Computed example of a mutant assay.
Amino acid sequence: MKALRLGTRRSLLAMAQSRGVAEQVTRLTGRPVELVEITTYGDVSREALAQIGGTGVFVSALRDALLAGEVDFAVHSLKDLPTSQPDTLALAAVPLRADPRDALIARDGLTFERLAVAGGRARVGTGSPRRMAQLNAWARALGCEIETVPIRGNVDTRIGYVRSGELDAVVLASAGLHRLGRQEEITELLPPDLMLPAPGQGALAIECAASNADLAAALGGLDDLHTRVAVTAERTLLAALEAGCSAPVGALADLSAERDVTEMRLRGAVGTTDGSTLVQLSTTGPAPGSADEAAAIGRELAEEMLAKGAAGLMGERAH
């Protein structure tokens, strides 16, 4: 039986994510899956993501390979996808989401609060303006100041800054650390009440060519409705704010964990990277039964945030 070709970035995390999806696809379809490694612009550029645009830099090469017929489907971290979906590609599945929270890896096993108040000016590494904004706002609320240091690189490189003593802590996505088996290095899972994740964080996206309806339908067996609804609300909020994926915007849609989901709470935050101003709003209502209903909730909250001055707080505007 001919193997399906799965396009993936070359990083350890991307490969781990793609292997997991490949195993699920094989169980679902009975077809073997081979990984095709593709280098993206975001992988080779050493500039800060905010400088190179952020939006789409990790996915464009994968999408080009799909449209050229070089691969049959691709796996992305959903938070890396631009919020507009091209007609030529199908978002065939959004599997069950992993933990969306951010994680702190700090020296001496410290929590963020203990690190911030420990004396001196703690140096915390992150390449994300969203994390910078919320970390600095949190420190200010504690009556402290920290220094957020822009960093890039893979998980080993980032954790290495703490191990070497160059930084006091780094912030990474909990989901990625778990997928790499590095969860034991987490010193604190940052509470969403103080640190909203990136829209779609913890979720994966499986794309294929829209013209391949049979494959799209087969891959759809991996789709998780509650995850798709939640991330649709979050990503629609991001789009309605006219912000790119490297803008300082956090969002999280919580669906009740009961068997019969009846309610969803959507929270959004946008702020200046120094933490001096932060707009945080939320809305709670009946759980949407479709992606369209979820999108409407995201747009509504975005309009409220814009009315509160969110537009003036974003360094990057992208359509």
Rank of each mutant, 00 (worst) to 15 (best):
G7A: 05
R10H: 10
S11Y: 06
G30R: 05
R31M: 13
L35G: 12
V36Y: 02
E37N: 08
R46K: 14
L49N: 06
G54E: 02
G56A: 06
V57M: 01
V57A: 01
D64L: 09
A65Y: 01
G69L: 09
V71C: 06
V71Y: 02
V71W: 00
D72T: 08
D72Y: 08
V75G: 04
V75E: 03
H76R: 04
P86F: 09
T88Q: 15
T88E: 15
A90F: 01
A98V: 05
P100I: 02
L104E: 01
L104W: 05
A106T: 05
G109T: 06
T111A: 12
G119L: 07
G120H: 07
A122P: 12
T126I: 08
P129A: 13
R131C: 11
L135C: 07
E145F: 08
I146R: 03
I146G: 02
E147K: 11
V149T: 05
V149C: 05
G153Y: 04
N154E: 12
E166L: 11
D168Y: 04
S174Y: 03
S174V: 08
L177D: 00
G181W: 03
L189M: 14
P191F: 10
L194N: 12
L196C: 11
G202Q: 01
E207I: 01
N212G: 07
D214W: 07
A216K: 04
A218L: 15
L219V: 09
G221C: 09
L222Y: 03
E234K: 03
R235E: 10
A240E: 14
G244Q: 03
S246N: 14
S246F: 00
A247M: 07
L255W: 02
A257P: 12
A257L: 14
V261F: 09
A269R: 02
Q280F: 13
S282N: 15
T283H: 09
P288D: 09
D292G: 15
A296Y: 06
G298C: 09
E300A: 15
E304R: 15
L306R: 14
G315A: 15
E316L: 14
R317P: 11
